[in-house]
C-alpha cells in the first residue's frame, strides 16, 4: 500500500515538474512580446532604460506623421499581396497534383517546394542577387516579389496538402458518379472543402512575406520594405521611440492572420501544416 501510494506520488510530482517547466517556457516565449507593448509608451528617448521613467501617447502621433514609415509599409503590403497571390496559385496546383496520385518523384517535388525555406535564407537571397547580377536584371518591385513568392509557396502548399489529405477520395468520385466532370467537381466539391485551408495558407504566406528581411536585403536594392526600415533602425537608431511604436504595431497586426488561420482550420491542422 505504501509502495503504491509512493508511486502515485512520484507520478504526480513528475507531471507537476513538467507543467512548471512548460509554464516557464511559455513565459519565455511571450514575455518579450509583452515588453514591446510597454516600450511603445515610454517617455525615454535616448536609451532602453527599464522601468520606463514615464508613459506617454506622444510617439503614436509622431510615428503617424512619418512619411518614410508609410512608404515602407505600403511597399511591404504591395509585395506581400502579389507574392501571396503567386504562392496561392503555384502552391495549390502542386498540392493537388501531389495529393491526386502517387507518381514517380513525388518526394522530390515535396523536397523542392520545401528547400527554399529549409536552406538558410541568406543562401536564397545571395543566389537570387547573383542571378540578377549575372543576367543584368535591375532591382525593382518584381525582384522582391520573385524572392518572396519562392519561399511562400511552401506555406500554401502545406496547408492545402494537409486539407486535401483529409478530404476523402470518394467525395471526388461521388461527384463524378453523379454527373460532374473534373471542372465541375473542382468547383462544387474540392474548392468548398479546401477553401478555408487556402485562405489560411494565403494569410500565413502574407505574414511571412510581410515580415521577411534576409532575402529582401539582397533583392530590394535601394527600396525599403518595413522590415528593412526596422533593420536600419536597429543598426543605426535615429528615433528610438518611433521604432518602439512600429514594433508594437507589427506585433498587433501579425496577431490577426494567426488567429484567423487558427479559426479557419483548427489547431491540429495548423500544427501539422506548419511542421511539415
Amino acid at each position: 500500500m505504501t509502495a503504491f501510494s509512493g508511486k502515485r506520488f512520484m507520478r504526480s510530482e513528475g507531471s507537476l515538474a513538467v507543467k512548471i517547466a512548460a509554464a516557464a517556457g511559455l513565459a519565455f516565449l511571450l514575455a518579450p512580446l509583452a515588453i514591446i507593448f510597454v516600450y511603445a509608451f515610454t517617455t525615454e528617448e535616448r536609451s532602453f532604460v527599464w522601468p520606463p521613467p514615464g508613459l506617454t501617447l506622444k510617439w503614436f502621433g509622431v510615428t503617424w506623421d512619418r512619411p518614410d514609415v508609410w512608404a515602407a509599409l505600403m511597399l511591404s503590403v504591395r509585395v506581400a499581396a502579389v507574392a501571396t497571390i503567386l504562392a496561392l496559385v503555384l502552391g495549390t496546383l502542386t498540392a493537388m497534383a501531389v495529393s491526386r496520385s502517387r507518381f514517380f518523384g513525388r518526394d522530390a517535388v515535396s523536397l523542392l517546394v520545401i528547400l527554399p525555406i529549409a536552406l538558410p535564407g541568406i543562401i536564397t537571397g545571395i543566389a537570387l542577387r547573383s542571378a540578377f547580377a549575372t543576367f543584368d536584371i535591375p532591382f525593382s518591385f518584381w525582384t522582391i516579389v520573385v524572392g518572396h513568392a519562392t519561399f511562400c509557396i511552401v506555406v500554401v502548399y502545406n496547408n492545402a496538402v494537409a486539407r486535401l489529405r483529409r478530404l476523402s477520395g470518394s467525395l471526388v468520385e461521388a461527384s463524378m458518379d453523379l454527373g460532374a466532370d473534373s471542372f465541375q467537381t473542382f468547383r462544387h466539391v474540392v474548392l468548398p472543402n479546401v477553401g478555408t485551408a487556402l485562405l489560411a495558407g494565403g494569410m500565413l504566406a502574407f505574414a511571412l512575406s510581410f515580415d521577411e528581411v534576409i532575402v529582401t536585403t539582397f533583392t530590394a536594392g535601394q527600396q525599403q520594405t518595413l522590415p528593412l526600415w526596422m533593420l536600419e533602425e536597429l543598426i543605426r537608431p535615429r528615433q528610438r521611440p518611433v521604432t518602439n511604436v512600429v514594433a508594437m504595431a507589427v506585433v498587433a497586426v501579425t496577431f490577426v492572420p494567426i488567429l484567423l488561420a487558427f479559426l479557419l482550420t483548427g489547431a491540429d491542422e495548423q500544427t501539422a501544416a506548419t511542421t511539415k
Binding site: 512580446l33 514591446i36 522590415p227 526596422m230 533593420l231 501579425t254
Partner: peptide, 16 residues
C-alpha cells in the same frame, strides 16, 4: 502562445 512568437516579426523579436 507558440504561434504568436513564431509568426511575429523576426526583427521585432530581435528588437525586443
Amino acid at each position: 502562445a507558440v504561434m504568436l512568437p513564431l509568426w511575429s516579426s523576426y526583427l521585432v523579436k530581435v528588437y525586443a
